[in-house]
Amino acid sequence: MHLACEQGQKPLSLVVTAGQRGDAPQFEAVMAGIHVARPGRGRPRTRPDLVRSD
């Protein structure tokens, strides 16, 4: 399970893979799944201001 979440622990993107998959190859898939709605009109944000990983 590969997860991206905000600091308040709200999930932004989740990718589930087989148990032997590494985190690094799934980074792009997880980041591509992020869509943060903007207040009012406009396309959702897809790029975070900051990325941390473990």
Rank of each mutant, 00 (worst) to 15 (best):
M1H: 07
M1F: 06
M1G: 10
M1V: 11
H2R: 08
H2A: 15
L3S: 07
A4Q: 10
A4M: 11
A4Y: 07
A4E: 08
C5L: 12
E6V: 11
Q7E: 13
G8V: 14
G8F: 15
G8W: 14
Q9C: 15
K10F: 15
K10V: 15
P11E: 10
P11H: 10
P11R: 13
S13P: 06
S13A: 15
L14V: 15
V15S: 09
V15W: 08
V15C: 11
V15E: 05
V16G: 07
V16W: 09
T17H: 09
A18T: 14
A18H: 13
G19H: 15
G19W: 14
G19T: 15
G19E: 14
G19K: 15
Q20M: 12
Q20W: 07
Q20T: 14
R21L: 06
R21D: 07
R21S: 10
R21G: 01
G22P: 09
G22I: 12
G22C: 10
D23V: 02
D23W: 00
D23H: 02
A24C: 08
A24V: 14
A24Q: 13
A24L: 11
P25D: 04
P25Q: 03
P25W: 04
P25R: 04
Q26V: 15
Q26C: 09
Q26T: 11
Q26H: 06
F27H: 03
F27R: 05
E28P: 01
A29Q: 08
A29M: 03
V30R: 00
M31V: 01
M31F: 00
A32H: 01
A32E: 03
G33T: 00
G33W: 06
G33V: 04
I34D: 04
I34W: 05
I34H: 02
I34E: 01
I34Q: 02
I34A: 02
H35P: 00
H35Y: 05
V36L: 06
A37T: 07
A37V: 06
A37Y: 04
A37N: 05
A37L: 07
R38V: 13
R38A: 09
P39L: 08
P39I: 13
G40Y: 02
G40Q: 06
G40P: 00
G40V: 02
R41F: 11
R41A: 11
R41V: 05
G42I: 04
G42Y: 07
G42V: 05
R43H: 07
R43Q: 10
R43N: 08
R43T: 07
R43A: 12
P44Y: 07
R45A: 14
R47Q: 14
R47S: 12
P48M: 12
P48S: 12
D49Q: 12
D49Y: 09
L50C: 13
L50I: 13
V51L: 10
R52F: 10
S53M: 04
S53F: 01
S53Y: 00
D54P: 03
D54R: 05
D54N: 04
D54H: 02
